[in-house]
Design a protein around this nucleic acid. Structure first.
Length: 794
DNA sequence: GCTGGGCTCTTACCC
DNA sequence: ACGGGTAAGAGCCCAGCG
């Protein structure tokens, strides 16, 4: 019989000497099924020396490893674009492929071995051309003997699964959860601190809450939680921080209580996978924290901040770990704990709804299961996408090598013309780096090293660096990028015909966004020394062509008399004279062979002397803040608020005097203590282990204090601290914000080292020096603002 | 012993 | 554990100083 299903998750089991791939699926009539495929065998490639008899070598390998090697095929493949003769060597045990490959590598007439490090389940997906979060059809028959598996039906695959193009998504059963623990000091420790409330919400909005009694024994609530998960039987279990914190905590609490946390579909506990995330067999363990990086505007990546940013819920009523005991021991406030726990599940469900379409499409495009895709760093997302395409291209996947880091030149950034400019158009090249790779066939398999002769087809030569790339045939990157662009254009034209309410709209829009993300990350991948396909000249050539594009555009601008005020990498900021701008775009198209467009027009734009920092007023009255303190996460809010307000005043033409009035009154309010404590917190990331810091720094000292008090901190965490009154270095005066109070704040430090630098950076452009801001001396008049003078720099 | 200039370390941004 | 280019503050070092 033929079964069509949507692939949720997969794993493999080694049973009776046969590797079985288990495909967890959902059918269109919403049955949960398991398909077992015993037909797929693990393998690796051995590339042979040119003049040998492949059959003989294959047979000798068969004889050498009678139990482990079960067959071979002779085949033609490519290694960095060069044709090679290879043996595809099939093994019996997926876990021994690595080992056999390394032994085969040592045999005579073998040049090298490949693809022994591609995981079996991913190998299965790639070779069958099927994708997680996609529809699949397979010929199969019912299968018995898998009694402990919790699905509606189990089948044995009789043939290769086939991918079915169908963008629809079945109704998934979702369960969001959160819990709160009672710690006596610092962060809760699962070895001693019990869970006091577990809250859940399902996909239909049904809320459940499990609470402990006065005895603080969490045995019972863990049991009830486990039972509930199993009876609801979700496809996706979603939370925030599940991989690093929540599930490990639950596992340890269960263990302490003599329980097994059996919440998967085979009756076992969650386990850590090779990729570092926690796997719940047959379900998706979705950790929304893994997607927090997508929201660059949110600086402190807490659940409440992400949820607020996405418009789910205000970041209010938050109860921090160290405050839990106060609430618990106060009968009047215990309810607040329960409310907060449930609020967090509401936040989780809201964030889930905001990201799930994108996550599903990224999983589909890249081919990594939904629970890996979030955990995978950008480089690995690109890489798995490439590996899948390499198979199609006949290119063997190179192994990762240790490569020496060698920096290379990047993009051009122009010195901005400081001051206020009116009517400025931002011209940018559309997807500059991907376009360059496409146009000049820049790819690891088209690169011609200096010692090699020029091929028949001719070469493209990169400016400055002179790296050469074959004109033909299309390289691996060109092929992949071309497909991505075609698919994206296609989707965008389909979307245009859909109404916003059409369920397909959301799906397809998410898909085209996923494609864009991967396309734009290809250049970065190419220059990453950890990349399997890393070849420095590939990345170096891309930036060289980019620089020449920008400098040629500059030349054309000056030829046609269009003034340029700034530019960065793939953009030029020019005075907005529509006819001249059109002329420029036309010449870019005809003379340079690239597409550029007017990205936006600023009614007014302010540059300081610094690159990468400006503020622009858009036609609709909104302000763009770029690079300035306003958008940085490592300045106290007082500085950001003050700078933002000053820029509003200036950009809307209200004049320098009004800005000065504002600053003086703001500083006055700071001194009177009218600004809330939280606006003084400075957040900085711990980028290494505390012991590895070479110099003392405030956030590192604050982190040390926290650690001493029993708070757990790890790499990548943000530390919030304030600077307190006192003498000595800043790092001696830094106090973690949760241990500090308002009266300890060194307000004068914040005025002189946070607020004044942030606002004077702006006002300097108008000739206002920092000392003048505080003095009540003569200040500029309103008319001066319209004839801005640059401060007295050489 | 203190000061200030210059260098280094560190973080976070832009594209 | 995706690239290079850039700004900026605070720590740190040490020459120079009656």
């Amino acid at each position: 019989m033929k079964i069509k299903f949507w692939l949720l998750d997969l794993n493999y089991e080694f049973r009776n000497g046969i590797p079985e791939v288990w495909l967890w699926g959902i059918t269109s009539d919403e049955r949960r099924i398991l398909i077992v495929d015993r037909r797929f065998k693990p393998y690796f490639y051995a590339v042979l020396k040119g003049d040998v008899n492949a059959e003989d070598i294959g047979n000798s390998i068969l004889r050498l490893f009678p139990r482990n090697v079960i067959g071979f095929e002779v085949c033609e493949r490519k290694v960095f674009g060069k044709n090679v003769k290879a043996l595809k060597i099939y093994c019996s045990d997926p876990d021994r492929v690595d080992d056999i490959a390394s032994k085969v590598k040592g045999l005579p007439n073998i040049l090298d071995v490949y693809e022994y490090d591609i995981r079996f389940t991913l190998r299965y997906l790639i070779d069958n051309g099927i994708r997680p979060c996609g529809w699949i059809e397979v010929d199969c028959e019912p299968l018995d003997g898998y009694g402990n598996v919790k699905v509606d039906s189990i089948y044995l695959a009789l043939d290769k699964p086939i991918s079915i193009e169908d963008p629809s998504i079945p109704k998934l059963k979702i369960l969001g959860f959160w819990f709160i623990c009672l710690s006596s000091s610092g962060s809760p420790k699962p070895e001693k601190d019990p869970i006091i409330v577990i809250s859940t919400i399902d996909g239909d909005g049904v809320e459940k809450m499990f609470t402990v009694g006065e005895d603080l024994s969490d045995l019972n609530i863990l049991k009830r939680f486990i039972d509930y998960v199993n009876s609801y039987d979700p496809d996706i279990i979603v939370s925030y921080g599940s991989n690093s914190r929540l599930i490990p905590y639950l596992l340890e609490r269960a263990r302490r209580n003599g329980l097994k946390l059996c919440i998967d579909r085979v009756g076992s506990e969650p386990h850590t996978s090779l990729y570092g995330h926690i796997s719940i067999t047959g379900r998706i363990n979705l950790d929304l924290f893994d997607f927090a990086d997508e929201f660059q505007e949110v600086k402190v990546k807490s659940l409440e901040n992400i949820a607020e940013y996405l418009g789910v819920m205000k970041a209010e009523g938050v109860i921090e770990d160290f405050e839990v005991q106060d609430y618990w021991h106060d009968p009047n406030r215990r309810g607040d704990l329960y409310r907060y726990s449930m609020d967090n599940v509401k936040r989780i469900m809201g964030v889930y709804r905001a990201i799930i379409d994108f996550a599903i499409q990224l999983s589909y495009l890249v081919g990594l299961p939904l629970d890996f895709i979030g955990t995978a760093a950008v480089g690995f997302r690109v890489e798995w996408f490439l590996i899948r395409n390499a198979y199609r291209f006949g290119e063997l996947v190179p192994k990762r090598k240790e490569v020496l880091y060698q920096p290379y030149a990047g993009a051009i950034v122009l010195q901005p013309k400081p001051g206020l400019h009116e009517n400025v158009a931002v011209i940018d090249f559309r997807s500059m780096y991907p376009s360059i790779m496409l146009t000049y066939n820049v790819s690891p398999d088209t690169y011609i090293p200096p010692e090699e002769p020029e091929p028949q087809c001719g070469v493209y030569i990169a400016p400055e660096v002179k790296h050469r790339f074959k004109r033909d045939p299309p390289g691996f990157y060109r092929d992949v990028l071309k497909t991505l662009i075609e698919v994206r254009d296609n989707i965008r034209s389909v979307i245009k015909g859909l109404s916003l309410e059409d369920p397909l709209y959301k799906v397809l829009d998410a898909r085209q966004k996923a494609i864009k993300v991967i396309s734009n990350a290809m250049y970065g991948y190419a220059g990453w020394i950890g990349a399997r396909w890393y070849i420095k000249p590939v990345a170096e050539a891309v930036t060289a062509w980019g620089r020449s594009l920008i400098s040629n555009t500059l030349k054309i601008s000056s030829e046609i008399g269009l003034k340029v005020v700034y530019g960065d990498t793939d953009s030029l900021f020019v005075e907005y004279k529509p006819e001249l701008v059109e002329k420029l775009l036309g010449r870019i198209r005809s003379e340079l062979g690239f597409e550029a467009r007017v990205d936006k027009v600023y009614v007014r734009i302010l540059f300081t002397e610094a690159k990468k920092r400006y503020c622009g007023l858009l036609e609709d009255g909104r302000l763009d803040f770029v690079g300035l303190e306003v958008v940085r996460g490592d300045w106290a809010n007082v500085a950001k608020i003050a700078q933002e307000r000053v820029l509003e005043i200036i950009m809307h033409g209200e004049g320098v005097n009004k800005a000065l009035d504002f600053i003086r009154s703001f500083i006055g309010r700071m001194r009177k203590g009218e600004i809330p404590f939280k606006e003084y917190i400075i957040w900085k990331t711990l980028t290494k282990d505390l012991s590895e810091y070479e110099v003392k720094a405030p956030h590192v000292e604050a982190a040390r204090i926290l650690k001493e008090k029993g708070f757990s901190l790890s790499l990548g965490d943000k530390v919030g601290y304030i600077i307190s009154i006192g003498t000595g270095k800043l790092y001696e005066r830094a106090i973690p914000y949760m241990l500090a109070s308002k009266d300890q704040l060194d307000v004068e430090y914040y005025i002189s080292n946070q607020v004044l630098p942030a606002v004077s950076r702006i006002l300097e452009v108008f000739g206002v020096r920092e000392e003048q801001i505080m003095s009540l001396g003569k200040t500029k008049t309103l008319t001066d603002f319209f004839k801005p003078k640059v401060s007295g720099k050489p």
